[in-house]
Nucleic acid binder design. Structure first.
Lengths: 343, 343
DNA sequence: TTGTACGCGTTATCAA
DNA sequence: TTGATAACGCGTACAA
């Protein structure tokens, strides 16, 4: 009985070896370090590989080689264009280096994220990409114990020492808020994603407060409405803002999608942007320029972040001991949704 | 020397077994079929698992169990919201059943797709999700040989017998084109993605031709400009359309993103939609309603498709021999970008 | 209910 | 340059 017959018809190394009249070791070498095999032998082996349609068994390979060439990422959701973009670039760069991407999404749920991390590590991920710093300490402990190199993206706090590629959410939002204040707005409100386990959102809100302080006003006065991600939720949140703080003249949203939702609500309520009310977003995804009027927002280099994340993680896996922290620059994009405060 | 010391400090089944004073078999059973283990023993074992931070070694598990619990998908790009959405739903449903998603994107490149498929299969994917029917026959042959259950999504042709979940691109577009023609448009043009290895795009274009035929006109007269995916490319394509066929009064795009690009070009050229020119899209993603004016388009249930795809693939993996073909309904969404033909 | 022992398909070490 | 063979960590018949 040939091996082939046993293994469901899927050819194994042994089958190839038999077919080419060499040992399994030689076949393995042909595939992994061809230069260490004689020209003639190699040709014969490769022919056998093709003829049998051989592909290595992943489990066996992973077990013996102690690595999977697989990198995992846990993101909040692929439906958010910022993550889709970043991940696309991340994957492309990984692919160039022979690595495969394993993805899971947490739906912005901390507990689910923990499950996903464990699942992906169990699936043999050689490295891991996570979004933002916020998570339970035991996740970090688990990753340390399992020795899974982990890179944090989308956040950057100078005082954090974990390997990171991201931008300073707080500083970026402060800068944007300054511009809003410079337009004479005294009553600013904020629509935010839930900040409980999302340092990106929290930092952005705090960034607004920083600017308010710097302008000599009381940051505690900032009206903040938290709501899950989505256009519709942004719409509802805006109505809530205007109920709680009808004197508001500028609404700063922590992302473009919420801002577009708010924009809709503004229209439905019969007001004009920016004449009656100014609006800002964050991320600078396509809908920011498509919106009517186009959104003032913070441009974030998502693709570059994805690409850099891949490079850095690869470097860490290679054992490079350089400082693995990279801060990317953001840029304020002033567009028509921001105007002077009405009298 | 304990096993633990050998294995880089990462705990193995044997470590847990020793820690809990049972055999490795018992630990394995605790994890995979807890009901076959005594209450007390199980508690002790699970405690050891937690204390040691044990996670099963993927390679070993895959090798022994002969399956990876991993499903792979190759999509054109995650940056296209339709795939991001579908894949998100696909992943959520898989997660509910303990499966992990492996993704790769082909950047709409047939050759790259082939590489990705081979890579993912080599990574031990238990099943595969592909977009559309079009691909080289040897890919299908390879998948058959490797016995990897494969499901096609985003397309549905009644005559194809491969497991499929999708919609009839051609019929949907025909229906939309009928509505355009009903508005009096005699000179229709089309902006399409490259049709060479993309049956979805090709079918949509052919759908327009069908409607033209049915209206008693010559389908060969349809002006078609092909261009890669993107807003900017849509813009350029529109200019080309108006150069080649200035008499055009309606431009049908094979997706919303191209349509939004065209919409921009229309504006820049000083024309009005829909007064001077009508425009349609396909997919009904968010930008379709955000555009000014909102786009007439074909609504596609992307999330449902993703969810169904997961269910069907899971069913196939389980060995269910039912007919694995599901046609989803699309729906025309008439919005303001479509108006009567100008005189 | 629990334990023993073998097999899974590779890689890597060592010798030839 | 090539071959024999021992890991690799887990699942699972089979035995107890």
């Amino acid at each position: 009985m040939t091996n082939s017959t046993k293994n469901n018809g899927v050819p194994t190394l042994a089958d190839v070896a038999q077919h080419a009249n060499v040992s399994t070791a030689t076949v393995s070498r042909c595939l992994n370090s061809p230069e260490r095999v004689g020209e003639k032998t190699r040709k014969r082996v490769m022919k056998a590989v093709r003829e049998l349609g051989y592909a290595p068994n992943f489990g066996a390979q992973a077990l013996a080689a102690r690595q999977t060439n697989t990198i995992a990422a846990v993101i909040p959701t692929m439906e958010n264009a910022v993550f889709a973009r970043g991940l696309q670039a991340f994957q492309e760069e990984l692919g160039r280096h022979g690595k495969t991407l394993l993805v899971a999404s947490s739906a912005y749920d901390a507990e689910l994220e923990e499950q996903q991390v464990r699942a992906l590590v169990a699936r043999g991920a050689d490295g891991l990409l996570l979004i933002g710093y916020d998570r339970a300490p035991d996740i970090y402990a688990f990753l340390a114990k399992q020795q899974v190199p982990t890179l944090i993206a989308w956040s950057f706090k100078p005082e954090e020492k974990r390997p990171t590629v991201g931008f300073d959410n707080r500083a970026a939002m402060t800068e944007l808020a300054r511009q809003v204040i410079a337009q004479g707005h005294q009553h600013i409100a904020c629509i935010s994603a839930p900040t409980a386990s999302n340092d990106r959102a929290r930092e952005r809100v705090d960034g607004i407060r920083d600017a308010i302080s710097q302008a000599g006003q009381n940051p505690a006065d900032l009206v903040v409405v938290e709501t899950p991600y989505g256009i519709e939720t942004g719409e509802r949140a805006f109505r809530q803002v205007m109920t709680e703080a009808p004197q508001t003249t500028a609404v700063m949203c922590v992302n473009d999608v919420l801002a577009v939702g708010a924009l809709r609500a503004v229209r439905e309520m019969g007001m004009k942007v920016p004449d009656d009310l100014s609006l800002t977003g964050f991320d600078d995804i396509e809908i920011a320029t498509l919106a009517e009027p186009p959104l003032t927002t913070v441009h974030v280099p998502h693709r570059e972040m994805g690409r850099c994340a891949a490079d850095m993680l690869l470097q860490i896996l290679r054992g490079d001991q350089n400082g693995h922290t990279l801060e990317l620059a953001t840029e304020i994009r002033i567009r028509q949704s921001l105007g002077p405060a009405p009298d």
